[in-house]
Structures are given as C-alpha cells and as structure tokens.
C-alpha cells in the first residue's frame, strides 16, 4: 500500500515529527511504500540542515535524510510555508526539496492513505 504523510509541526518542539518518522519506518518494514512526506506549517523546520541537536539526542533532520536516501522517499517542503520561516535552498538538508502545495494534493490523490501528524 502507498502512504502519504503530512507533517504540520517542527522537530523537537512537538512529537509529531517523531511519530511520523516511526510510522514511516514501521510501514516500510511491513513492505509498504511511502509515496511522499509533505512538510507544511512549522513542519518545514524539519528540513533545515542548520539543526544541531546535542550529541546524546536524536538528529531528526538527519534521520529524515537517511530514510529518504535508503528508501528513495520524496521529502517535499511547502514553498510558501518555507519562505515564511526562512527555509530556503541554501539551508535545505539532503533529500529534501522545496515545491508547491499542489504536491500535497497530488499525494492525497496518488497515495492509498494519507496520514496527518500535527499539534
């Protein structure tokens, strides 16, 4: 089955990004496909490569990049939400791309299920 994921909150502040990541990992382990992870609202903050968490903490941004690399997952950051919050091409982490909101609607159409994680 193809899953689409929508993340509306930033990393560390809220558990949404952790829940979404663990959901994706479990789905992949079960042989499902992640059609796309779409980052919206403060969720766009998952995409900044400037993040530097303490060494004994999980690195949420790098974790997304690694998952995208290993499973060819499309990580899309909403352009309008990103520009509002200072996320641009130059500070984008590996595996993420900036695109329009149409990508979220497209995921809703193409994925079998779309799950929202937020506050």
């Amino acid at each position: 089955m193809k899953f689409g994921i929508l993340i509306n909150e930033g990393p560390y502040q809220h558990q949404a990004a952790d829940s979404a990541y663990l959901f994706c990992k479990a789905a992949l382990e079960k042989g499902h496909e992640i059609h796309r992870v779409f980052f919206y609202h403060d969720g766009v903050n998952n995409a900044t490569r400037l993040t530097e968490p303490p060494l004994d903490d999980r690195n949420i941004v790098k974790r997304w990049s690694k998952l995208a690399d290993e499973h060819k997952i499309d990580l899309v950051v909403c352009v309008a939400a990103a520009l509002r919050r200072g996320i641009q091409e130059e500070n984008l982490a590996l595996g993420f791309r900036i695109s329009g909101l149409g990508q979220l609607v497209e995921t809703g159409i193409e994925a079998d299920r779309t799950v929202t994680f937020g506050d």
Binding site: N8, Y40, H41, A81, G100, L101, G102, L104, V105, I109
Partner: peptide, 17 residues
C-alpha cells in the same frame, strides 16, 4: 492553521477533486 489550510484548499481547486 486556518490561513494555511485555506491556501491548500485554493490549490486543490486546480486538481478537479
């Protein structure tokens, strides 16, 4: 949330859903 939700709604109109 309300404003950004409205932005998705407007975009969705282009997809004839």
């Amino acid at each position: 949330y309300a404003l950004e939700s409205l932005e998705v709604v407007l975009i969705s109109a282009a997809f004839d859903q």
